[in-house]
Design a protein around this nucleic acid. Sequence first.
DNA 1: CCATAATGGTTACATCCGTAACTATCGAAA
DNA 2: TTTCGATAGTTACGGATGTAACCATTATGG
Lengths: 171, 171
Amino acid sequence: MARQDDILELETFLPYRLYHLADLVSREFARVYKDRHGLTRPEWRTLSGLGQCGAMTAKALGEQSAMHKTKVSRAVAELERRRWLTRSPDEKDRRVEHLALTKAGLAAYRDMVPLAKAFERELLARINELDRGALTVALDAVEAALSFTPPDADNEGVAAGDDGRRRVRQG
Amino acid sequence: MARQDDILELETFLPYRLYHLADLVSREFARVYKDRHGLTRPEWRTLSGLGQCGAMTAKALGEQSAMHKTKVSRAVAELERRRWLTRSPDEKDRRVEHLALTKAGLAAYRDMVPLAKAFERELLARINELDRGALTVALDAVEAALSFTPPDADNEGVAAGDDGRRRVRQG
DNA sequence: CCATAATGGTTACATCCGTAACTATCGAAA
DNA sequence: TTTCGATAGTTACGGATGTAACCATTATGG
């Protein structure tokens, strides 16, 4: 029974497997926002974050959508160049800028939301009810397991403050 | 009950969530092979693939470890530079090279295996038995769901020929 | 009030990555 | 045998990324 102990089976190695799956899914979804609007992933996340939350600071955006601050900075710069968002200075603290989508930005967001939901729906549709439940449980569990491991600060590795269990939208 | 339908909740959006988790895990594990041997991910996968399978061609390596052929090419070049692997021409087909680890490469591999296993073990240890089961089921299910979607060929998106269900090593 | 540290955000640089184009070889068909 | 298309692998090039250094501003502590 004892598995060979000096060999690692890459195909079943959790970090590899998880990354590979995520990469496939993410790459496939990237086609949607790339083909449609020529967005990079950080740009898509920025659009999505602002669409969801309204005005935010760059810092808040980075925390909400798990992006390194340089990614945020660049994504914001690009969306600003497109006139999809505007910055407005904070009255109290002049280091801070509040970001918000313009009409054009909002339009792009509104265009993307149904596509994103459809993508997720179609992916989940290929998984049966039971396994979908397992997926939710599993994601929650791994997330919880990671949040025990403070990933030596700074950012990008922020497990986003635990505000209770997350659910994969069903159906 | 009806969720707001013009807003996407990024934190629960499957592609985002999956990618973010995988990124955290992968990044954390990357510290192991990076700190220890200064390897990149493609280099680690190459080492791992060759350690696991013995001699392989670059093409087989790419399929086994889900890497684009340019990544394989570069990783192999670097490991060769370190004298961790050698190439030997195929007798029948002179386009093909067979790759194999040298003593030094094998030593590095043997050094990494226990670390990789320990990393996985410690991560899984933070997840209870039941959720671990759910994780296995979920990964299998998503993998299966993806293999329905032929990701327009070429490579990198190869869902590795389905040789039966995979299991996350338990314990 | 001043010095120092912390914070929000940007930028420079080196590296990594994917697309596409390339070389070399092989197989098949004429 | 010649030609043409596929295949193994490399490379050139532009774009994306992370680290670290940076600027400006604000908080802290004497």
